[in-house]
């Protein structure tokens, strides 16, 4: 299966996920928030992969492919929104973007 115990990979996924969570909580720049979300998604993918490696099935990798597709679509839309926000409100501060209406 794999040369390393999948439990350690799960631990690594946990650490990365928590780091991404930290980034989402602390950073105020919307780009950094999006990047931290990407970190979390990637960590989740790693967890899937570790699970697949533990049971010796290809399903973990299949899940990761789907996660990849989802992350791509999400990043595209998220960045488009960020661009729009930048042009409209001239700020990238998530704390300033509090109201749906102007």
């Amino acid at each position: 299966m794999s040369a390393v115990d999948p439990v350690y990979a799960l631990g690594l996924a946990g650490v990365l996920f928590v780091l991404g969570l930290l980034g989402v909580l602390v950073r105020r720049n919307i780009i950094f928030v999006l990047a931290s979300i990407e970190i979390m998604v990637n960590a989740a993918g790693l967890a899937f992969l570790a699970a697949g490696a533990r049971w010796g099935q290809a399903d973990g990798q299949v899940m990761f492919v789907f996660i990849l597709a989802m992350a791509a679509a999400e990043v595209a839309v998220g960045l488009a929104l960020a661009l729009r926000i930048r042009r409209r409100f001239n700020t990238l501060d998530v704390d300033d973007l509090r109201k749906l209406k102007d």
Binding site: A9, L12, A35, I39, N42, L49, G60
Partner: peptide
């Protein structure tokens, strides 16, 4: 972040998932 992803790719390879 790119560096982190490259490192993770190596982790994936070690976990026995070269395609991913």
């Amino acid at each position: 972040l790119v560096v982190s992803f490259l490192a993770l790719a190596l982790v994936f390879y070690v976990l026995g998932a070269p395609f991913v």
